[in-house]
């Protein structure tokens, strides 16, 4: 992989002089090489994941087989996993990631909108606070987080996890949303209001649709962040019953000290990826634009 990718700039350097005629539709060797490189890289990225799906579908007896495709396809890992408490872990993860994302959007959107539209006293302080907390790592503050939520004594560790995930992803959401709202001219809203819409109507019909890529980016980041979070979940569910643990913690149940339940581990991992993939598929085109909004004009 390393060779393929790092070759790209020097390759263009060498061939640069001869490949000037790239504007044409002709199939130059350069184009072929680049396309092959692109497909090769795509393969490198996707093969490990394919390997996992295949392993999850392998009957246990064939786990050691060297053939790339299993002789028999065995769905039992995907059916029997629901009897292992996996369902509760999945539910816990959905609650934590969904709740955290919802909280982030509810809290971040008004703040980001207002800071984008108005100058007010404390605006710079607020933005600085947002930026500073973006640098905070749950890892560094783990002991403090643990203390805090012990003293809160919330009825379920899932509530604590919703709060923590919202808190640590809020900064990014505010920042990206702020960039988006700033890029939408206030005149658009005012024009709509002159035409008789209320302020909220202008927000709902003009501003929010235009800011959708930013909202989607914030949503994706928060959801993935919360879905992936392990360290805080590990700490805050230390004494909690198994069903209150999110997937990242619960999946450890398939990993014993001496043996690993590969079938269930991989079936569970495949399922754990699905909500995130589904989310991506829904909003795919919006993400790429959203990423650069805050950095390059």
């Amino acid at each position: 992989m390393a060779t393929v990718v790092t070759d790209a700039p020097p390759a263009s350097h060498r061939r640069g002089a001869t490949a000037r005629a790239r504007s044409g539709r002709r199939l130059t060797p350069r184009k072929v090489v680049l396309a092959l490189a692109a497909y090769a890289i795509a393969m490198i990225f996707v093969l490990p994941y394919a390997e996992m799906i295949i392993a999850a579908l392998r009957p246990p007896r064939e786990l050691l087989d060297r053939g790339y495709l299993p002789k028999h396809v065995d769905w039992s890992n995907f059916t029997s996993i629901w009897k292992t408490g996996f369902k509760d872990n999945l539910g816990a993860s959905l609650k934590v990631a969904g709740g955290g994302t919802l909280l982030v959007l509810l809290v971040a959107m008004p703040a980001a909108y207002y800071t984008a539209r108005r100058r007010f006293r404390g605006r710079a302080a607020f933005l600085l606070l947002v930026l500073a907390t973006q640098m905070f790592q749950p890892a560094a503050m783990l002991v403090g987080i643990q203390r805090e939520f012990i003293s809160f004594n919330l009825p379920s560790p899932l509530l604590s996890l919703i709060l923590v995930n919202a808190g640590f992803n809020l900064a990014f959401a505010v920042w990206i949303l702020n960039a988006y709202f700033s890029s939408i001219p206030a005149e658009l809203e005012e024009a709509a209001m002159v035409d008789g819409t209320s302020r909220l109507g202008a927000l709902g019909r003009i501003t929010l649709p235009l800011a959708l890529p930013g909202i989607v980016t914030a949503l994706i980041f928060t959801f993935i962040g919360a879905w992936n979070e392990l360290l805080v979940a590990l700490t805050l569910t230390l004494g909690a019953p198994d069903r209150q643990r999110p997937l990242t913690v619960g999946i450890n149940n398939y990993i014993g000290q001496y043996s690993i339940d590969w079938g269930h581990l991989f079936a569970g991992s495949v399922i754990a990826t699905l909500p995130v993939i589904a989310l991506f598929a829904l909003i795919e085109g919006k993400v790429v634009g959203g990423l650069t909004a805050g950095s390059i004009k």
Partner: peptide, 21 residues
């Protein structure tokens, strides 16, 4: 009013643990 919720979550979730550690 609009900014307070964000500040509360930020300070509550990241500020307090920082003070605590």
């Amino acid at each position: 009013l609009l900014i307070l919720p964000a500040v509360v979550v930020l300070v509550g979730v990241t500020g307090w643990p920082l003070y605590k550690i």
